[in-house]
Amino acid sequence: MQTYLSFDDLTNEEKYEHFMERIAAGEKIEADDWMPDDYRQSLIRLISMHGISEIMGALPEKEWVPKAPSLHRKLAIMAKVQDEMGHGQLLLRVAEDLMAPLGKTREHIMQDLFSGKLKFHNVFHMEAPTWGDAGMIAWLVDGAAIISQSMMLDSSYGPYARALKRICAEEVFHAQHGESIVLALAEGTAEQRALLQDSLNRWWTSLIMFFGPKSAKETGNSNADKNIMYKIRTKTNEELRQEFFTKYIPRIWAIGLTIPDETIHFDESTQLWVYKDADWNEFKQIVSGHGPRSQERLALRQSSYDMNGWVREALAAKKAI
């Protein structure tokens, strides 16, 4: 008579081995599957940061929603920022499922954001003082997001991969919406073109930073390497940045803009773009809440959270009835 060993009877090492075999075989891990704590923590860190970045990312663009300069642009940017909030919601739901076994909820995510423990993307700490920025964010920041998110479409964590599929489909529209704003300005008056060039000058360094440092030695952080081991992601920061350059630098040049980096060029021998790297200490400062608009944006989020406290209480009371 053959005896079957249940999965629960395996030692942690055996479970881990089984888990890594599944990862190696390209299987998708689902929310209720066994997973090592390390994998769960990596996902929570990545997905809650991604989700909260979508939500904080609505704030710089929100500045331009009421001011968009035509009915068509008003409709488009409203739809765009609404999508971003929707992405945030979708991702927070994925993160919440991962946090549930640890007894944590969305409330913890919000409190971690306010306390500075949970960081959000460097680009959303920056100023967006002109309409040119509304175009630049949608065109290049969303363009960069498409590149970094597309590589995770095949992520080993199923719920994240599926959420990204929906998100990427919408991001493509956002990049087109951004491109349309940028082209209107690029083909417009000298003032409109100046607005656009100013905006590119302002955003370029942030876009270099967007993909993160080349390796752990710049920031002493090895999350990217771990995420590759677990097949949560498949490419390095630098590979993604090079892809971004290859896709967008020719387009930026084609519409007559100048990239604020005199050294930038494509090296035929290495088949890589050569560029001036960002100051990664500055990056650390920005994402730790010391960027030009970090505190204002957090204050806005916090004040809306506080002013609506009575609404959450009222809804919780209804739920209890």
């Binding site: 704030l59 609404q82 609506n308 609404v311």
Partner: peptide
């Protein structure tokens, strides 16, 4: 309504309310 964007009582409401505002602008 568009001034509320990002400031609604919860994220789900932000999504719904901005959809309504977008419809009304339309």
């Amino acid at each position: 309504g568009s001034e509320w964007l990002g400031l609604a009582p919860h994220i789900e409401e932000d999504v719904a309310f901005s959809s309504i505002n977008q419809d009304m602008m339309g």
